[in-house]
Amino acid sequence: MRSAILASLACASLLIGGVWIGQNVNLLPTDASINAPVYDELFKVLFTIGTILFVGMAGLVVYSLIQFRRKPGELGDGLPIEGNLSLEIFWTAVPAIVVLFVGIYSYDIYDRMGGMQPLHHEMHRHETSNVQERIWGGIGSGTVERTEEIQTDTLPIEVIAQQFAFLFHYPKGDILSGELHVPTNQPVSMRMESKDVIHAFWVPEFRLKQDVIPGQPTILNFTPTKPGRYPIICAELCGPYHGGMRSSVVVESAEDYQDWFKKNSKDTILDS
């Protein structure tokens, strides 16, 4: 009876502790795009479940080692228990339910991030007139999260990756930049292609990554939300200077972005 109470107390504190840790321990950098808070939601759930499972299993192992250790002078065997069908069913069903829940939940998250949307790319269509292109990627164009303040027109950018730099080309204004400038709350659609080997475009604060592949364009959509300067990191081994293949993305207010755009644009000089 007493051990049953202790065991249920241990379980309860494990559950509460796991939920508390999952909610209060933050292991992630700032969230600076519309899908980053969605990501962090998923992370909290996974972190909570993971903490409970890990502490529970490790606790059981350590407890067994202490409680059932052989005391000096003991020579006998343990109980000849060879199995228990209902226990086996229990610990097949529980992980199956947990995994199913995690799978369905992460599908929902994936959908909210725009992972299930067909990849339309009107912006880039003119280049793909002759061949049916294989365009893959495309997470991060979620519509569900869009609020009133987010503009509907998309900013197209072409990304060229090569050993060991990223180049950003803005078709509107014909700007070629080594640094990515984007305004807050405007969806950005990047069409990326590599000139040599496989690279990957990663902004930890956006929680997004997409490989940049030679001979096969990939698409990455995102909507930045927080002004700031964040690192762009190449995440796929691309040669000796892979570690140095970094750039920054500058997320700025619409006005600051317009200033930058006007200063660098080739079209506006002609217009004015």
């Binding site: 990501y39 992370f43 890990f54 994936y110 990663w202």
Partner: peptide, 23 residues
């Protein structure tokens, strides 16, 4: 291995993996 397995299930989730893949 339990810890490695838990991070493994997390990594299997596409939306989780797009951030931490190759890190």
């Amino acid at each position: 291995f339990v810890l490695g397995g838990i991070t493994g299930v997390a990594l299997a989730q596409v939306p989780f993996d797009v951030h931490v893949h190759d890190t």
